[in-house]
Simulated scan of single mutants.
Amino acid sequence: MKYYFTFFSFLFISICGFSQEVDEKEQVEKLEKIKAVVINAQDASVLESVHIINLNRVVGTITNEKGEFSISAAVNDTLYFSYLGFKPQKVRVTNDMFKFKDTKIALTELAYALEEVIITPYQLTGYLEIDVKNLPINDSYQYSISGLNTGYEAGKKNPSAVTKVLGAILNPADLLRNLFGKKPNQMKKLRQIKEDDAIKDLLASKFDREILTELLQIEKVDIEDILNNCNYSRSFILTANDLQILDAISGCYEDYKVLNRKK
């Protein structure tokens, strides 16, 4: 009887300990609304239409005319602030941000230096038929984002182009396999990013890849290598906005998953 009592006592203590660990974990992961104000660090004026992204939860929002915003987050999440003409900033969420409603986030202005741009004109003869024939031909295919009424040049994206992705899968040392295979959790964020309107609106106005690198936790050079391996043209890689780049990476990743299942 004594042994049974000891056994059940040990079991009860273990269950209680496990339950406490689960409760503590749930408490840490509990999402709450953060309310704060974004200001200009130079003159303390409020900033309207600042984009805020929770990099951990892949949700976004923007500030109102009073510089106020509200976003779901948990302790230790990272908030990414982006505003035209200001330095992007990352802020770690703390308990104090939930306790105090007067939190202010200050952004610092950037100083831009305009560089000289040299435009090289085509040598035109004045005869339309001759000049048209001499113009460089862009034989790349048009690429489009689902739900958007816009198209843009994206390389020779045809059925034969998928052979590059297949080659990436067959070669264990290839960058595509290394990135897509070793970062499955980051690649899963692709769909989440595309479902958030605030993040999509921000990416559509960006061309610097900064937000994509933060969200996907990959380097800019990796983004370029992914698109090169998926047969996107150089002009697309250099000129597309971040939303178009996101959709291109997503399409490439879907091809990778299909081919990897067939391997």
Rank of each mutant, 00 (worst) to 15 (best):
I223C: 03
G60A: 05
G85D: 15
A74S: 13
K194A: 15
D222I: 01
L47Q: 06
A106H: 03
R92G: 09
L128T: 10
L31C: 05
I237T: 03
G147I: 09
D77S: 04
I211V: 15
A240L: 09
D197Y: 05
F207C: 08
K194Y: 07
D247E: 11
L215Q: 00
T103V: 12
P136C: 07
I62E: 05
S9P: 01
L175N: 04
N40L: 05
A111K: 12
R57S: 11
G155Y: 00
A113Y: 04
R191T: 14
N56A: 05
L107P: 01
T163W: 05
V75A: 05
L215T: 00
A161S: 13
S70T: 13
Q123W: 03
K90A: 10
R57F: 06
Q42G: 06
D23W: 03
D77C: 05
L170A: 11
A113V: 12
N185W: 05
Y256D: 00
I211L: 14
K182S: 14
F98N: 00
L216T: 02
G151N: 13
L84N: 13
Y143T: 12
K194G: 06
A204S: 14
Q192H: 10
A154M: 02
F236M: 15
A111M: 13
V132S: 08
T78R: 12
D174L: 06
K30I: 02
G60R: 00
I169Q: 01
N171A: 12
E116P: 00
K263R: 15
D197W: 03
K262D: 04
M97W: 01
K30F: 15
V165Y: 00
L179I: 14
I145L: 07
A73N: 03
Y80S: 10
I71F: 04
Q244M: 15
P136K: 03
K35C: 04
E214L: 08
I218G: 01
E219A: 14
A154N: 01
Y127M: 04
N56I: 01
I245K: 02
E116K: 04
F12H: 03
N54W: 06
F81W: 09
V46R: 09
L227R: 00
T78L: 10
G251W: 03
A204C: 11
S45M: 09
T120E: 15
I39Y: 06
P172E: 11
E219V: 03
V132M: 14
N241F: 13
D174Y: 12
K262L: 13
Y4K: 08
L190D: 01
S235C: 02
A154D: 00
I211N: 07
Q89T: 14
I218M: 11
K206N: 15
K133S: 13
N40Y: 04
T239G: 07
C230Y: 02
E129Q: 08
R234C: 11
I105Q: 00
L31R: 06
S9I: 08
A198T: 11
S160M: 13
L202K: 02
K220V: 11
Q217N: 11
K183E: 04
I39N: 05
T150Q: 14
G17V: 07
L190G: 01
L170F: 10
Y4M: 08
R261E: 07
G147L: 07
E21Y: 12
I119K: 13
I52S: 00
M1H: 07
L114E: 14
S205Y: 08
T103Q: 07
A161I: 04
